[in-house]
């Protein structure tokens, strides 16, 4: 026991000498080793329990993280097989050709469709919810009305995506007679985006210190100048993060699109009417995986891999912005 203790103390003293010993003990590893020793030094029953509890929890963490890698490996191996292959609709062809006869081609229709749908959703949903949130946070007084609007937005954000699909189908497609297609699909996605973006924008604006606004107003700026030049600029990283996260979420949604955007094995030819039906990546994954043909199933996984890559990329960018840019600005 004493041995370990003295070893521990020695390690701590060695920190100075370690600097000469270049490269052999990387700092992170040395720190980890010391941390590990501190964790495993046992003095009695309570320490043993302590250690066992920690070991249990580390096993739990491994279990929690495992599904991520299992999904990644499964989708990645099959998907990469298609993306790197050289058959029909494989390799670069996978991104650049439409399915064609027997679904042997690529999934250009799905990628383009997702781009159209997300584009429409962003075009409609983001300005509405962003400016709406700015008005609600900056221009209205807190009170019953405001908190009930916030509660309604929270409730709507918690409603399942298929309910939005049912709403979009019944209200937009049937009652308003827009018809299925990219307009109805994009609007449904926009409706899904509104509550989330509204709430995250509000949250970002609330984080801006009051003193910034007061300073600007005290210098004689109008409310508009203050809001536009000071408040929004300070809250910008938070707002962008919220928008990107909502975009990533909307990109992977299947259920709202089943009844609103239709499906299409080619590219859409018009904005309204039957020519505007579009495929989307999640919908393609769904319909391809229930196909009995093997190569179609593989394409489903490759599409899933592409979709996952895009969503994770957006997520990483959002993360990067919220971490790096926030620190610089505030």
């Amino acid at each position: 026991m004493d041995d370990v203790k003295s070893q521990l103390r020695l390690d701590e003293n060695e920190a100075y000498e370690e600097t000469e010993d270049t490269g052999y003990h990387p700092k992170a590893f040395n720190e980890f080793e010391r941390w590990f020793k501190r964790q495993t030094t046992i003095h009695g029953r309570r320490d043993l329990k302590d250690l066992l509890f920690k070991m249990l929890l580390s096993v739990v963490v491994i279990i929690v993280c495992m599904p991520f890698f299992m999904v990644l490996i499964q989708v990645g191996t099959v998907g990469m097989g298609v993306l790197l292959g050289s058959g029909p609709g494989q390799g670069l062809d996978f991104f650049l050709s439409t399915p064609g006869p027997g679904l042997q081609g690529g999934v250009l229709n799905a990628i383009a469709g997702t781009a159209y749908l997300v584009g429409i959703a962003m075009l409609v949903g983001v300005p509405l919810s962003l400016f709406g949130a700015i008005y609600i946070t900056e221009y209205t007084r807190p009170g019953f009305m405001r908190s009930s609007v916030e509660f309604a937005a929270d409730v709507l954000a918690g409603i399942p995506s298929i309910v939005f699909g049912a709403f979009g189908f019944t209200f937009l497609v049937i009652y308003l007679r827009i018809g299925m297609g990219m307009l109805a699909g994009g609007l449904t996605l926009a409706f899904m985006m509104i509550p989330t973006v509204l709430r995250t924008t509000q949250e970002a604006l609330r984080q801006v210190p009051m003193s910034l606004r007061e300073a600007s107003l005290a210098l004689g700026a109008t409310k508009w100048t203050t809001t536009w030049k000071i408040t929004i600029r300070a809250a910008f990283p938070g707002i962008i993060t919220g928008v990107l996260l909502a975009m990533g979420r909307v990109m992977g949604e299947t259920a709202p699109l089943i009844f609103t955007s239709g499906n299409n094995l080619g590219l859409p030819t018009s904005v309204t009417g039957p020519g505007s039906w579009v495929a989307s990546m999640p919908y393609t994954v769904w319909s391809y995986i229930s196909d009995p043909r093997n190569y179609v199933n593989d394409k489903a996984q490759a599409t899933a891999l592409t979709l996952m890559g895009m969503v994770l990329l957006i997520d990483l960018i959002a993360n990067f912005i919220s971490r790096k840019v926030t620190r610089r600005l505030v």
């Binding site: 299992m70 996260l245 979420r249 990109m251 995986i289 199933n297 994770l312």
Partner: peptide, 21 residues
């Protein structure tokens, strides 16, 4: 980061994995 990425994976991909594995 891993946990955040798990939250970002679309549900259809989880569904695909569950269906296949």
């Amino acid at each position: 980061t891993i946990v955040e990425m798990m939250a970002a994976i679309p549900s259809i991909v989880y569904g695909l994995w569950a269906y296949v594995v």
